[in-house]
Amino acid sequence: MMDSKTVVLQKIRNALPAQRERREPEYAAIQRKYLQAGEHDSAHRLALFEQRLRDYDAGLHRCGSSTIAETIAGVLRERQKKSLLVAAEIPVKWLPQNLTFVHNDALTYAEIDHSEGVLTGCATAIASTGTIVLRHSNEAGGRALTLIPDYHLCIVHAEKVVETVPEGLRQMASFAAAAITMISGPSATSDIEMTRIKGVHGPRTLDVILVI
């Protein structure tokens, strides 16, 4: 008896024409007349990114590269947070004094569940859709870290923000082997009477610090 792989592939080959175009040139001939690269300058691109984030009700802050630590301190004071989990690749110089930051890959899900929130960076960001791209387990930490806590503070460097989805995907292709999470606003559902409810299972509050 033939195995199922052989049977399925045989059925596919029987269904397709005996004479086929060569694959690569046919793929290359696919028309891609859609917008590839963005048209905005960097100031407009960042403004668009911020506007999209605001549409998603994300908290929004700007700072320079020398004031990251104090900006984080300010955001956490406002949110009344004393302690956050952090991804291992977050530079220590970002972390303000007098607050507790824990990076520990051995935490159980229950321990992560009891945390006040998580601080991460991001690999790239897409302005037109307000998307933050997390690369695990690099600057975003393990997948559970940005998922189980109810609060996520994300540091986005301006030079990582691209304008269009195609530009974002080309960035992502360079680390496609990693697990990737694209976040476009806090988790949400419209399953009950199409009313959008923010915060189902992922973090209910997302703050973004844009480093210019």
Partner: peptide, 20 residues
């Protein structure tokens, strides 16, 4: 759903010994 991008997309390849 009429969104520019849905809140979460997950993309993964095989498995990673340190995560997931």
């Amino acid at each position: 759903t009429g969104e520019r991008m849905n809140p979460y997309n997950s993309i993964w390849t095989g498995f990673s010994a340190s995560d997931g």
